[in-house]
Amino acid sequence: MKHVAAVEGQSETRVRMPTRRALAKQQTRAKVLAAARELFSTEGYEGATIRDIAAAAGMSTGAVFANFADKSELFREIMTTDLAAVVEAMTEAASRGRTVDDALLKIFSAGYGFYKSQMPLARAALGLSWSWQDGQALRALASIQEIIDLFGEQLALGVERGELSQECEIKLRSQMLFDNYLANYPQAIFGGWSLEALQARSRDQIRVILAGARRG
């Protein structure tokens, strides 16, 4: 901690002080988020209470509320972080696609691969997505639109490369790809499907959705 002491001795101490407080606050938030992630995964969204989350994080409920307005904000924050990582993985995967089918399948697989080890959290998110208020809030996350746009970009590339017809309805097709991507989660959650089984089903779905666009 020698380095910190040296910095404090300098003239910009006044500027640095709030940063340190911000850092402490950030650590508190990270602790709460880690505890919340764990509880949402074991108890589900409804079952995890702020009181339990606070206890698991080793702090008071007041301290939790000082950082997050309510449980739904906590959940949204976790989803925001995860989905940003999902979008990054999907974007990277798509760039390795050789054909439009291949790129789309790689996008699906990147998503399933990310959630494979945390299906209970995906289950909590899917359940919540059907509720009126919280569902809308989840839907409004920027990453959701980014995933749909990613499908659209690959479709547009497919048109450019001549794999799909010019009249390819990109908007409608992107949305349907996203629906199909989501629709396979229940198989993984309740049916225990492997990544390979999910990929096989996704490959068929992509083929059905693209079939009409391959004709002139």
Partner: peptide
């Protein structure tokens, strides 16, 4: 294959 795709689209509408 067709049924799967239609069922997913159906869910979106809800």
């Amino acid at each position: 294959m067709i049924v799967d795709t239609l069922m997913a689209a159906y869910a979106w509408n809800y």
